[in-house]
Design a protein around this nucleic acid. Structure first.
Lengths: 199, 199
DNA sequence: GACATAATAGGAACACGTTTCACTTTGTCC
DNA sequence: GGACAAAGTGAAACGTGTTCCTATTATGTC
């Protein structure tokens, strides 16, 4: 529980450790935002965060862990923001579309960052399992909440639909990152999937 | 059109070039099958294919290009096999499930190869666009044919459904590769998505 | 068949993720 | 406040993807 490289923000550890962790993730986001996946070089992250390379690796055992952890932090922020205000829309489909498009728009506003985080997420292997799982849960939570605001009991179908929508959204994002589809096409893909699943 | 590192099998080029290309892809598959993504080392591929490192890079400009091209060749084979015999199943849902599960089973029979090819596909960036596109088209074609055998005219909804199913399948595969879900769960995810979409 | 051109071989060199190690600083417990 | 362990520093070194260069070998043209 005192593990330093755990993911949740409210983790134990000294103030200095929390500060280092924050500086590292800030540096990661800044570099990713400027030049994408390739620009997030471990030596550069360490220098910008003002820690030694060895310290960086003590906090995050690999570049992929680092980027997926940064993604998890961004998702936690987005989820927290979304949790406060009610989601506009008269039905589940509209609310889900609102959430997904808003998130997508946010990511497309910073293409390099999105490229870095998406590719890291998709490239991860078994060793990043727990970090990946956190992101997956946050995504499912966001979607089920959009489908049924304020509802705690969910049917199996609800969860299944949320997972399928999450899959579609991730695949669409990968398509956008790889230049196969435009921003509008990503929006369309999501709308189509929502329409097919939540009619 | 005479470009050596194009993807289609029936490409132009001398017999020697076709032979080299085949040897390289064979070596790639063999190494991937034995040790996964990490085992596909460019020096090892070159040595096993009996070509110089520079030649390997002339044919495939990066490790990702190489692996995605190998994936495309495997997909072309699978698609060709599937094209011949009729797909069992009384309705679209059953036939799609048959195709996806058969393909999934094939991939899970060679976990290392699947890991290598899936991770390469997901890690690809814009420079691999055309190779990635070929794989995507093959997947969509396989699925629409399973939905409507022998039918050339397809509605927009058919294509949209096929794309969503392809997305779910890819995401499920990534989940399996990252150790988040078991083989059975992959099968279940697919069944659920098909049931939701093709009811 | 001789020549021009392209393709290949062989290998050095470079970049960046990762590991390692000797040393120093920081934090904790008595 | 001293001793000890944990954490951090700084730098070297290693592995593998990628690039580059020169000599050699095929290939196609007249």
């Amino acid at each position: 529980m005192t593990s330093v490289n755990s993911l949740t923000v409210d983790e134990l550890g000294s103030a200095a450790q929390r500060d280092r962790r924050k500086r590292i993730l800030d540096a990661t986001i800044a570099l990713a935002s400027k030049g994408g996946f390739d620009a997030v070089q471990m030596r550069a992250v360490a220098e910008r965060a003002d820690v030694a390379l060895g310290t960086l690796y003590r906090y995050f055992p690999s570049k992929i862990h680092l980027l997926v952890s940064a993604l998890a932090r961004e998702f936690e922020r987005a989820e927290a923001t979304l949790r406060d205000k009610p989601i506009p829309g008269d039905n589940a489909a509209d609310r889900v579309i609102f959430v997904l498009k808003k998130t997508t728009r946010g990511m497309q506003g910073d293409p390099h960052l999105t490229e870095a985080l998406t590719r890291a997420f998709m490239f991860a292997d078994k060793s990043v399992q727990s970090e990946i799982h956190i992101v997956g849960m946050l995504l499912t939570t966001m979607l089920t909440r959009a489908m049924h605001p304020g509802q705690t009991e969910l049917t199996d179908d609800d969860v299944a639909i949320a997972k399928v929508l999450g899959d579609v959204w991730l695949s669409a994002l990968v398509g956008w990152v790889t230049g196969r589809s435009s921003a509008e096409e990503v929006g369309q893909q999501i709308e189509v999937a929502v329409r097919l699943l939540l009619r």
